[in-house]
């Protein structure tokens, strides 16, 4: 179970608003976050990853405290085991695809899982290639594969399909769906596309000015937004 109670003052244009999230998330669920730009979606994921701090609150993941301001407890980013994929897939320019995939765990990489994910993502022919020769879709597949091979506690996807064309997007959505189900990962996805969310998520949160204003099963909740 993941318990999130966090508050952070954010600036949106000329105004300030408070990101205020109080939620409990079931393990292995796939939660989509839907809302306009600048409502605090990415900040929420960055706080979960430990890349930003809330002003107050607490985050508890499977009885493990990741953040508690009153007890001054903080779990370091590198100890959280987060798989994070953003719109601009961040691949290290000096490493081949294989080196990117084994960077996290080195010799302790689960090579059986690596082979499975590589096949699933259809990147087996790219293993010795450097990122500067990859297309946008290939880069994103490598970034998602790298995140999964870590066996992350949380998989955070911040608009990972936005920069891709329709065909590539569909292909990656299907792959992500398969992977999330197969490897039982608790996943958060930020997306502006209702259809994408319906295909992937078990629950959707509608965010407005830092608050969750509506939530539930995507097909029901997103009717109004199509």
């Amino acid at each position: 179970m993941i318990q999130i109670n966090l508050y952070k003052t954010l600036r949106g244009g000329n105004d300030t608003f408070t990101l205020c999230i109080e939620e409990k998330i079931k393990p292995y669920s796939f939660t989509a976050i839907f809302g306009k730009s600048g409502v605090g979606k990415s900040t929420l994921l960055r706080i979960l990853a430990g890349l930003e701090f809330p002003d107050k609150g607490n985050i508890k993941v499977n009885d493990d405290i990741w953040w508690n301001d009153s007890r001054k407890e903080f779990k370091a980013v590198k100890e959280r085991n987060i798989g994070f994929v953003t719109q601009q897939s961040v691949l290290f320019p000096n490493m081949t695809v294989k080196q990117q995939l084994t960077f996290s765990k080195g010799k302790n990489t689960d090579f059986k899982l690596l082979d499975e994910v590589v096949n699933l993502m259809e990147i087996e022919n790219l293993m010795d290639v450097f990122p500067n020769t990859l297309s946008g879709g290939q880069r994103q597949r490598v970034a998602i594969a790298r995140a999964i091979i870590q066996k992350p506690t949380l998989l955070l996807l911040d608009e990972p399909f936005t920069a891709l064309d329709y065909e590539m997007r569909q292909q990656l959505i299907n792959l992500t769906k398969k992977v999330a189900k197969q490897y039982k990962m608790t996943t958060f996805l930020i997306s502006h596309h209702p259809i994408e969310i319906e295909q992937l998520a078990t629950e959707v949160w509608i965010m407005k000015n830092g608050n969750i204003v509506d939530k539930g099963i995507p097909t029901k909740i997103l009717k109004a937004y199509k």
Partner: peptide, 15 residues
């Protein structure tokens, strides 16, 4: 160096 490299390395568990 893009800040994203540092963050990604941290997320991948590197010191």
């Amino acid at each position: 160096i893009p800040k994203a490299y540092l963050e990604t390395s941290k997320l991948l568990g590197k010191s």
